[in-house]
Amino acid sequence: MDAQQQWRTEVEQLVRTHGRSRTALMPILQDINRAHSYIPEGAMLAVSAALTVPRTEVYGVASFYSYFSVKPRGTYVIRVCRTISCAKQPEYHPAIAALFNELGIGFGETTADGIFTLEQTNCAGMCDQGPSMVVNEDVHVGLTEASVRSILNNYRRAAEAAKRPQ
């Protein structure tokens, strides 16, 4: 099966879950984004054909929302809240320094092993418990230098376990 045929098959499966209407566009893109950490061009073309939505509009939606990406990202996307309630906490800068040091990357970058992408997010809604970050669909609060290291190690272990043959 060529690559585009694979995308067509994958998108058809998603259409079975979410339907073949324009209202299914967001849920379908969300599932692709979750499964692959981003929305590849081939996927956008297949979605465009399956839902008969112009490809420019599929790209328009995929590039509008901050949780979507049209460029490859790591398995785990870390989103550090940068809004004032979190950013004014004394542990905020030490926690970010720990992320930079542990991962060896800055904001907007992906680690060479493809496990982590580091991003910033606007208010994650954890203002009473900051500093906070959202990693894929988990939220972490009360961040410190030490807690950041242990959180990253847990995700590293999970990524290794997923790679090991069953």
């Binding site: 324009r22 566009l25 967001m26 969300q30 939606v61 509008f64 901050s66 949780y67 997010t121 208010c123």
Partner: peptide, 19 residues
């Protein structure tokens, strides 16, 4: 999918409609 503006009700509707 991460857009503050979608809390505005008409933007929210656009998002639900796949835009």
């Amino acid at each position: 999918s991460g857009a503050y503006i979608c809390g505005e009700e008409t933007a929210l509707l656009e998002s639900l409609e796949g835009r």
